[in-house]
């Protein structure tokens, strides 16, 4: 199957004003394609959580989105500090965010659980000191 649309983004680290720009562009593209609202909402929330994680924890990174007729696949890759224990990171409520970050409303430890909740497939690979790669897929209803 050939790609319908391929999008690429640079995500800036530690910038909460521009955070979400990549996700918003994906969302707008999906809306313009007439993808159902509930599907747009699911990938938008999942991708934003992943994008915010790159902003907070990894000094930014790269994101790509491939939109097919029946699904969207998003890959977010950073060269940040990596995740020591993915199983622990997946637990609701577990967070390594600083008090400053929590003051912004992040760091509730619900980011990865939310991504899992809203996607049809969620894969995460991480190596401490090297970085993290996240794959998200949402099937269109």
């Amino acid at each position: 199957m050939s790609d319908v649309i391929h999008l690429e983004f640079d995500v800036a680290g530690n910038n909460f004003v521009s955070a979400g720009t990549a996700t918003n562009q994906v969302k707008d593209t999906l809306r313009n394609l007439g993808i159902p609202n509930q599907d747009v909402r699911r990938i938008a929330i999942a991708m934003y959580e992943a994008e915010i994680n790159m902003v907070i924890h990894a000094c930014g990174g790269k994101a790509t989105a491939d939109i097919y007729a029946d699904k969207i696949e998003v890959v977010l890759e950073d060269h940040g500090k990596g995740i020591e224990n993915i199983e622990l990171a997946m637990q609701p409520g577990w967070s390594t965010a600083s008090e400053d970050i929590r003051g912004l409303g992040f760091g509730a430890g619900m980011g990865l659980p939310n991504i899992k909740k809203y996607t049809d497939e969620f894969k995460i690979e991480s190596e401490v000191g090297k970085g993290t790669k996240v794959y998200l897929r949402v099937n269109f209803s």
Partner: peptide
């Protein structure tokens, strides 16, 4: 006020009550 809770739980088209005022 925790944004991930909002994204995880708030229904579409709802009224969201918060004291958060930042750009996020």
């Amino acid at each position: 006020d925790f944004l991930s809770f909002v994204m995880g739980r708030a229904p579409s088209s709802c009224a969201w009550f918060t004291v958060m005022t930042n750009v996020n």
